[in-house]
């Protein structure tokens, strides 16, 4: 499990947006995104940066305080200590006040044609 220095996140919101700024949890500790840009309304795109500087036992995008939030696509670029950055794209989910999205993924294994 590598140490995650930082990660860039890009969230494209689907039908239902959210009103409050998103936060993430690293190993259960809630932190705000830095350098936030864009929006979280329906069809809008949000970008931000997290700097956990920690081993990611768990890394979650916290659901909205109320209502539902549809994320159409989430793209995360991880910068782990001593490694080349890598990017993972995640499909759509609907988050609510009781749910979080797992946004920690290890580097995908390489695939080759045979």
């Amino acid at each position: 499990m590598p140490k995650v220095d930082s990660f860039q996140i890009k969230i494209k919101t689907g039908q239902n947006g959210r009103a409050t700024p998103p936060v993430f949890k690293i190993n259960g500790f809630e932190l705000p995104f830095e350098d936030s840009e864009g929006g979280l309304g329906s069809g809008e795109t949000f970008t931000g940066k997290g700097s956990p500087q920690s081993m990611a036992h768990s890394l979650h995008l916290v659901g909205p305080g109320e209502g539902e939030w549809d994320t159409e696509e989430t793209t995360i670029t991880y910068q782990c200590s001593g490694e080349e950055p890598y990017t993972v794209r995640l499909g759509s989910v609907t988050l609510d006040s009781d749910s979080d999205m797992n946004i920690w993924h290890e580097r995908p294994l390489p695939v080759f044609d045979v």
Binding site: G91, V93, S99, D100, P108
Partner: peptide, 13 residues
Amino acid sequence: EPERRIINPPVLT
């Protein structure tokens, strides 16, 4: 704190 549901979205390739 109540237990929260953790959703694993599909990884797109």
